[in-house]
């Protein structure tokens, strides 16, 4: 049970076995994806045919299009990045404003608003997607009917994908930044004001620097969640497919190991992001 109580040998062995099996379960799929990115065969399947870098570097002449020559895949990575940048910027800005609103202001209906801010987290992503799709289409139809304007940004496409992802990622940013602002010692602001600082200067030099870890953290989470989002994006996507949608389409058709190559690329990128954030966190603590 716990270290201070006697534990029979079989229980110790079972615990070690369980941890081993659990870690195998967690990492086997990822390891398999990574290994088959280097297999010299047209499909990501055993047996092992030897090591190759074709799935990264290959070009059409060799009959194998590698990741760095696959303009469709590279384009979708770029699409995902630009969507994620928009979502991150919007979510962090709105999240910061919301944190000040909920922690600093008093107004009628605040309780309802704070409940409402959490609801996007319990609505399934598919439903967020279809509701925004239907509502935007109705607005676009209205635009055409009333003003004779074609509001293309309200039709399925990247602007709607950004709005769809933002609709729930903003809730996460709000929670993270509010939690930090709640712990802020307001006497620091009062001291600065007493010493003659303007409200803007206090915000810029005292409050925002204090919030910085939460802002950076929620920006990283927002970027990652946007990049990986599938459910909401699937419903709102137009002709430009972000990476997850592109990969899904190819996985259904039975793709070449170039998907493993792009997956390995993503794993490396996430690992670098995770490590950077953890080191930052550690530095701040010490």
């Amino acid at each position: 049970m716990i270290p201070s109580l006697p534990r029979p040998a079989w229980l110790r062995a079972a615990t070690a076995l369980y941890v081993g099996a659990f870690l195998l379960f967690l990492f086997l799929p990822l390891a398999i994806v990574a290994v088959f990115a280097f297999n010299n065969a047209p499909y990501p399947a055993p047996p092992w045919h030897g090591f190759t870098l074709d799935w990264f570097l290959g070009n059409e002449a060799e009959g194998r299009i590698g990741l760095f020559r696959d303009s469709e895949l590279l384009g979708s990575i770029w699409t995902s990045c630009s969507v994620a940048l928009w979502v991150t910027g919007l979510s962090v800005a709105v999240g910061t404003a919301n944190a000040f609103l909920m922690e600093r202001e008093q107004f009628p209906g605040k309780g309802i608003l704070s409940m409402l801010m959490l609801t996007p987290l319990v609505i399934p992503g598919v439903i967020l997607g279809i509701s925004i799709l239907a509502f935007a289409s109705r607005l676009a139809d209205l635009c055409t009917e009333l003003f004779g304007i074609e509001a293309d940004f309200l039709r399925p496409g990247l602007p709607l994908v950004v709005l769809g992802q933002f609709s729930y990622i903003a809730a996460i940013a709000t929670l993270t930044i509010s939690a930090r602002l709640k712990r802020f010692d307001r006497s620091l602001e009062d001291a600065a004001l007493n010493l003659g600082a303007s409200h803007a200067a206090v915000l810029w030099h005292i409050t925002l620097p204090y919030l910085r870890p939460a802002i950076i953290g929620s920006a990283a989470i927002a970027f990652l969640m946007s990049f990986e989002n599938f459910n909401t994006t699937l419903m709102l996507v137009g002709s430009d497919a972000p990476l997850t949608i592109m990969m899904y389409g190819r996985m259904r058709e039975g793709a070449t190991p170039v998907l493993n190559a792009v997956s390995l690329f993503l794993m490396t990128a996430s690992a670098v992001l995770a490590l950077t954030l953890m080191r930052r966190g550690k530095r701040q603590q010490s």
């Binding site: 967690l26 990492f27 086997l28 799929p29 990822l30 390891a31 398999i32 994806v33 088959f36 990501p44 399947a45 990652l224 990049f227 990986e228 599938f230 990476l243 997850t244 990969m247 899904y248 996985m251 998907l259 493993n260 997956s263 993503l266 794993m267 996430s270 690992a271 992001l273 995770a274």
Partner: peptide
């Protein structure tokens, strides 16, 4: 335990399909 969840669900599902 948290590491695999930094990678997208698409990648993890690809792993299970190959397995």
């Amino acid at each position: 335990c948290l590491i695999p969840f930094w990678v997208s669900e698409t990648v993890r599902t690809l792993g299970w399909m190959i397995l």
